[in-house]
Simulated assay, not measured.
Amino acid sequence: MRAPHVLTQTTSRVLEPSDLDAALAVLDREPVANAFVTSRVQIAGLDPWRLGGEMWGWYEDGMLTSLCYAGANLVPICATPRAVRAFADRARRAGRRCSSIVGPAKSTADLWRLLEPQWGPAREVRRHQPLMVADRLPEAETVAPDPYLRRVRKDEMEKIMPACVAMFTEEVGVSPLAGDGGLLYQARVAELVGSGRAFARFDADGKVVFKAEIGAATDRACQIQGVWVAPEYRGTGLAAPGMAAVLRYALADVAPVASLYVNDFNTAARRTYQRVGFQEVGAFMSVLF
């Protein structure tokens, strides 16, 4: 195995597989906020082909202090102001290849400010998305977990896919079926179903009325995503029990802390998560192209 780079100057570079331990040490500084990228790195390492993108590193006095994942998303990680400037310079030189910039609100805002003159305008900028966490179930008398929510089976892909497409289109503003006809998106949903991290409640006709997934998972934190209630069932009280049931699975089977981030303008969702016991601990920001 080739020895890792030894750097004495302040610089940035593309990380290599030999940098894995140093990268994981940075990611481990903020296990909740970094759960998405950490889960990918733990599975794929730092090889760009397996990881689905490059990992950029920022060094100060020879020590790796900040990261930026550059794949389908551009994600600043524990990024100091100097690191953000270096990552912006590298992103400008490479040209935009991502569909979004997403990460902690401060560093993402700084990164977008530097990139917007070349990369703008964005399709949408969501500047404040509360990051919320829960490490215990709500009291049963407050919100009881939905007894009908369960893991989606592998033979139920045809039932869950329409709900996933509807959720993605509603949340992001574009269909995940565009471009490649949805092959990558379907593969991702199948991966979550196959790993037992997709959950749904079905009605008597087999239609999905509530769903959510645990999209990222490490041994320290997991991230709930894709929360969706069928339009005709909204306002009927399914969301909070459904979330409580997903949280029960997350804490029992995946990690000691569950997180999610939500648009600040989605007041109904924020109230639901608060009822289930999620507390706001920070904020993300997303720039959508």
Rank of each mutant, 00 (worst) to 15 (best):
A230R: 15
E116V: 09
G52C: 08
P48F: 05
I101L: 15
A217T: 10
L111C: 07
I77K: 01
P31E: 09
P130G: 10
D19L: 05
D21E: 15
R127P: 01
L7C: 13
V6G: 00
A255Y: 07
R92Y: 00
A33E: 14
T272C: 15
G282E: 05
A216R: 04
R188F: 14
G181F: 04
M157P: 00
T218V: 06
R136F: 08
R90Q: 13
L115M: 12
F87V: 07
V209R: 09
P176H: 05
P162H: 02
D21L: 08
V37G: 02
A86N: 09
G282P: 03
A91T: 14
F210L: 09
P76A: 11
T11V: 15
G242E: 09
G235L: 11
V32K: 00
R82W: 00
L74P: 03
R82M: 09
Y148F: 14
V102K: 01
W228Q: 08
C68K: 03
P48N: 07
Q118K: 07
V152M: 06
R220L: 11
L7F: 14
S39L: 06
R50H: 12
A22L: 08
P256E: 06
P31T: 13
Y249S: 11
M161I: 14
F289A: 10
D219K: 03
P81K: 03
